[in-house]
Nucleic acid binder design. Structure first.
Lengths: 213, 213
DNA sequence: GGCTCCTGTATTGGCGCCAATTTATGTGCC
DNA sequence: GGCACATAAATTGGCGCCAATACAGGAGCC
């Protein structure tokens, strides 16, 4: 069944899966995460569930109450805003690092994702929107030589559940974010570093709806 | 013996202790971390050791080889430099946030630690240097409203083992870092935001000896 | 009727055992 | 003497059991 040494890896992926489910709201804030339920739901062993929960606690997505269990952390808007601010800072710095490294082929690929995101804003699930958005930024950060910076950015992304903040996003704000993507591409092509840094900040810190990054 | 629900907390503190021991070089890079040895050394149970190791793997301080064991990660200078760069970015941003919030009492306390650090550069253990250094920055970041930013900065601090990089630091470079501390205080008093941001960058990215932050 | 206490049930959490596998040791052979 | 192979020891890693504790439901009491 479970081959030796693979439990670690399985727990890892389980944690990622649960992280996404929390982000998408399938596991609602305040909800109790009973170990037996999680075993059944994800087809995992008890130990894998425990390790995954432990990681999510470490990331601040899940709260642990001794002898009571685990529950999905309810999201303090202020804390979320702080995380978004950190993201904005790093995203601006990362943009500065890749502005001279993005070739035309990558920019074209980014444009495709920008189109996809814009289309999904109107008629598309949150998952589809998020996939396009994620891929856009993944492409953009791919040439960044500082892998730690990139890894940290994606880690921070996982700490801000889309479902929660996206709830506050009107279609208008999402459209604005969609247009940002095209503007980003334009500024990279123009090699306008200061303009890009400013836009990355705005893109991450859209007033009262800080999530679409 | 072990009271219920405390295992988690103990594993947490054990991870922190081991993290410091790795940072100080008491656990050398490449060294095998046998679970029985760790049990004996830290007076912990098997499970606590496992959880602690798991966390250190997650942080990138320890490498796990299936069915072989855990060993202290040997530190890629490039990766370290990347982490230091992230720290420099965030430290500059944090400085900008606290420059208007630091009162004279705190600045005086910082000055004490700056003196302590300078003294320990000449005759003092690495531990003493690091304690003064840490306290200086702790005081400086205390009024920062973005707690996530501060938490992340201290987390990043733990990922760069002082012993390893400090090895490259000549006394001259350490003294330069010590003077930086006084310069930081001066710039905060003068409310020179741009100068402070620049200095925080330099302070973190001292050429070829990027560790003293 | 409502409050309290008590019992039964569900859930978590730690501990120990044992299998799988790797490393070290010793023996025979070339 | 050195190499290959078999055997023994050591180590990790997963699984299951059971104690400790919290929660739910019901009975008894005021």
């Amino acid at each position: 069944m479970t081959r030796p040494g693979l439990g670690r890896e399985r727990a890892r992926t389980l944690a990622r899966t649960m992280e996404r489910d929390i982000g998408l709201g399938h596991l609602a804030p305040g909800e109790w995460l009973k170990q037996v339920d999680l075993e059944a739901r994800y087809g995992a062993t008890r130990m894998e569930v425990r390790q995954a929960l432990d990681r999510l606690v470490e990331k601040g997505l899940v709260k642990h109450l001794a002898r009571r269990g685990y529950r999905v952390e309810d999201f303090d808007p202020e804390r979320q805003a702080q995380i978004m601010e950190v993201r904005a800072i790093l995203e601006a710095a990362a943009a500065d690092q890749v502005i001279g490294l993005l070739d035309e082929a990558t920019l074209a690929a980014m444009e495709v994702q920008a189109e996809r995101f814009r289309a999904n804003v109107l008629d598309g699930t949150v998952e589809e929107q998020e996939e396009a958005n994620l891929e856009f930024h993944r492409l953009m950060l791919a040439p960044c030589p500082n892998r730690e910076l990139v890894a940290l950015l994606f880690d921070l992304r996982g700490r801000v559940p889309v479902a929660v903040t996206r709830r506050r996003n009107t279609v208008g704000l999402l459209q604005r974010a969609a247009e940002h993507h095209f503007e980003i591409i334009r500024l990279v092509r123009a090699r306008d570093a200061t303009g890009l840094a400013r836009l990355m900040r705005v893109h991450n810190l859209t007033p009262k709806a800080p999530d679409v990054g």
